[in-house]
Design a protein around this nucleic acid. Structure first.
Lengths: 216, 216
DNA sequence: AACCCAGGTTACTGCTCAGTAACCTACTGA
DNA sequence: TCAGTAGGTTACTGAGCAGTAACCTGGGTT
């Protein structure tokens, strides 16, 4: 996985490695915090090599964003189109999203935490993705609930935010429950809200869900 | 509102003005993008004056974050504690949140877009706030639905994300519907999901909600 | 065995920008 | 009328860092 310093790589391999290293450092230190020097060094190489592959720091970051967003988009598209019912479509969407977050934690931070504090170009890339997902979700909602445009879009934006919020929490809390359980929980919330739980105040639990570990 | 250059102000007034100006510039240009020089100039003053009131750029930003988060916290607290039923509590929470966003657009960008791309100190301030809201919401959920800890907390994080996502969308789309309508929509989603709409594919709407303008 | 070039290095430039030292000046009050 | 000080200015330093010019070298090809 990590390439030892002093080894010569073919251009394509070096480029791929640089992207991996850059993703790690950008996720850890942020866009400002990660200098080109540091990225090069972490890759066991010097700065000009980095500039042979990416014309500027912006270009490097942009390439990363595009790659990650592309992958996430593909996986979501697959999830949406494979399912049959609308509820299943939504549930699979959540699963695909959370699977991505679970497997590409660095990428998630990059996309939805780091990129937002940067200029409009970067924000735009993420905004375009969000728009795409929201449109997809809005279509599902509209098909299911027969809602007029602006309300469907508002709810779609809310759903997207829900996924992001839950994902951020899940990572911050060190993955306190299995991804799939979380995905099901979100799908249930979107579909039926809290109404699906026994109404009234407070029993200690035991509604019917699988038991979840309380520990760290 | 805006203080003309060349006017001498009392320390407290100058400090308040500097905070206002800084908030605007930070929201527009980001933390990196807004230089201390630029902030001072926009306030009709020179850099050392800025440093008389705030020992560093970080301190300035931190003061801003603290002030805005404090205000938002207060308003949410008021909303939560005034209401009676749990559903009403949640709805009022959404309203308070969205009212803040509507009235303090700059602050919203600062808190939930800009601050996240910065170091852990700043992120921590926002994280602490999110945690607080999530705890409050989790308590409401638990009281209503009788859920065990981790699930309630997961859903609470999702609700918070929902509000943020919807608020971001609402601003990006230039406020396409009244805040209160959006708040009601979110409360409905959280409480009953899509299940409250006529099931099955497609009628043109007319469930019972207030009519919403289709235009820009 | 001389060539050549992809892959790499050393050593710089220039700019932006946070933070500071030293100086200035219009009020205010006795 | 004359100090004292709060509020403000000019002019600088120093560091970090993106981006570049010029040079080096090992191994495959003929």
């Amino acid at each position: 996985m990590s390439v030892p310093a002093g080894v010569r790589l073919r251009a394509a391999d070096r480029r791929a490695q640089l992207l991996r290293v850059a993703r790690r450092l950008f996720a850890r230190d942020g866009y400002r915090g990660a200098s080109m020097e540091a990225i090069a060094e972490a890759a066991g190489v010097t700065k000009p090599v980095l500039y042979q592959h990416f014309s500027s720091k912006r270009a490097l970051y942009s390439a990363l964003l595009a790659a990650e967003l592309g992958q996430l988009t593909e996986e979501l598209e697959a999830a949406f189109s494979q399912a049959e019912g609308n509820d299943e479509r939504l549930r699979r969407g959540f699963r695909a999203y959370l699977d991505f977050v679970a497997g590409q934690e660095d990428a998630f931070r990059l996309l939805f935490t780091e990129a937002l504090g940067l200029d409009e170009d970067f924000q735009g890339q993420v905004a375009a993705f969000r728009q795409w997902v929201a449109d997809r979700v809005a279509a599902i909602i509209a098909a299911e609930a027969g809602l007029p445009e602006p309300r469907a879009r508002a709810l779609a934006a809310a759903i997207v935010g829900m996924a992001e919020g839950a994902a951020g929490w899940w990572l911050a809390e060190d993955r306190p429950l299995p991804v799939n359980d979380l995905a099901d929980e979100l799908a249930g919330l979107a579909w039926k809200g809290f109404a699906r739980f026994p109404a009234g105040s407070g029993g200690s639990g035991g509604s019917g869900g699988p038991p979840v570990p309380t520990g760290t």
